Amino acid sequence: MSSWRGSVALALLLAGCQGASVTRDAGGNLRAYIDEARRLDARGAQKAIRGVCASACTIYLGMRNVCVEPGAQFWFHAAHLPDDPSPDSLGSLEMLAFYPPRVREWVMRSGALDSTDFDKAKMLSGEALIAMGVPACRDAPL
């Protein structure tokens, strides 16, 4: 494993997010993330993403009140079923449906949901997402 992959893997194994701010979130069960994003949206809650947001965490980009820090990192990969590393096309389509239009276009153009591997080419910075129209965080609480 290359050193940057090892660093990413270690970062992604660290604690996930709770509440309104993401600092390190390696993703997980897609259904749970969809339910959480919908629950937060229904309350009008803000979701601030400041650190590493990978896998299912990236669906938070589709929330009404999401914001990202320029230095945040978003790691994309295809959805997959538990104990099966092969891509789950239906799960990936669900993820795609949550992304804002310009992010969705990038994901489709880059093939970011074509495989279940993390790859530096399938990473977007918060700065890149802000350029795509995702709101930047402004004094959002940690």
Rank of each mutant, 00 (worst) to 15 (best):
Met1Val: 15
Ser2His: 07
Trp4Thr: 15
Trp4Ala: 09
Trp4Arg: 08
Arg5Phe: 07
Gly6Arg: 08
Gly6Gln: 13
Ala9Trp: 05
Ala9Ile: 07
Leu10Tyr: 14
Leu10Arg: 15
Ala11Val: 08
Ala11Gln: 13
Ala11Arg: 15
Ala11Asn: 14
Leu12His: 12
Leu13Asn: 13
Leu14Arg: 15
Gly16Met: 02
Cys17Ile: 05
Cys17Arg: 06
Ala20Val: 01
Ala20Phe: 00
Ala20Met: 03
Ser21Thr: 15
Val22Ala: 04
Thr23Asp: 13
Thr23Trp: 08
Arg24Asn: 13
Arg24Gly: 05
Asp25Glu: 07
Arg31Asn: 14
Arg31Cys: 04
Ala32Pro: 03
Ala32Leu: 14
Ala32Asn: 10
Tyr33Asp: 11
Tyr33Arg: 06
Asp35Gln: 11
Ala37His: 01
Ala37Pro: 01
Arg38Gly: 05
Arg39Ser: 13
Ala42Ser: 14
Ala42Asn: 11
Ala42Trp: 03
Arg43Ser: 02
Arg43Met: 04
Ala45Ser: 10
Ala45Phe: 00
Ala45Gln: 06
Gln46Tyr: 00
Gln46Phe: 00
Ala48Gln: 07
Ile49Val: 09
Ile49Met: 15
Gly51Val: 03
Val52Asp: 05
Cys53Tyr: 10
Ala54Ile: 09
Ala54Trp: 14
Ser55Ala: 11
Cys57Phe: 11
Cys57Trp: 07
Cys57Ile: 12
Thr58Asn: 08
Ile59Glu: 02
Tyr60His: 07
Arg64Phe: 00
Arg64Asp: 12
Val66Leu: 06
Val68Leu: 09
Val68Phe: 02
Glu69Gly: 03
Pro70Gln: 11
Pro70Lys: 15
Gly71His: 10
Gly71Trp: 09
Ala72Arg: 00
Ala72Tyr: 05
Ala72Ser: 13
Phe76Arg: 14
Phe76Ile: 04
His77Ser: 03
Ala78Tyr: 00
Ala79Val: 04
His80Cys: 06
His80Arg: 13
Pro82Ile: 08
Pro82Cys: 09
Pro82Leu: 12
Asp83Met: 12
Asp83Thr: 04
Asp83Ala: 04
Pro85Asn: 10
Pro85Thr: 00
Pro85Ala: 14
Ser86Gln: 13
Ser86Val: 01
Asp88Ala: 07
Asp88Arg: 02
Ser89Trp: 02
Leu90Ile: 10
Gly91Gln: 06
Gly91Lys: 12
Ser92Leu: 06
Met95Ala: 06
Leu96Ala: 10
Ala97Cys: 04
Ala97Asn: 08
Ala97Leu: 08
Phe98Asp: 09
Pro100Cys: 07
Pro100Glu: 06
Pro100Gln: 10
Pro101Leu: 00
Arg102Glu: 08
Arg104Ser: 10
Glu105Ala: 15
Glu105Phe: 08
Glu105Val: 00
Trp106Ser: 05
Met108Phe: 05
Ser110Tyr: 03
Ser110Leu: 02
Ser110Thr: 12
Gly111Ile: 02
Gly111Tyr: 03
Gly111Gln: 01
Ala112Lys: 13
Leu113Trp: 05
Leu113Cys: 13
Asp114Asn: 14
Thr116Ser: 12
Ala121Arg: 15
Ala121Leu: 09
Ala121Val: 13
Lys122Cys: 07
Met123Gly: 11
Ser125Gln: 03
Gly126Ile: 01
Gly126Tyr: 11
Ala128Asp: 12
Ala131Asn: 09
Met132Ala: 09
Gly133Ala: 07
Val134Arg: 14
Pro135Cys: 04
Pro135Asn: 12
Ala136Ile: 01
Ala136Lys: 15
Arg138Asn: 11
Ala140Glu: 06
Ala140Asn: 11
Ala140Phe: 01
Ala140Met: 09
Pro141Phe: 04
Pro141Trp: 03
Leu142Val: 13
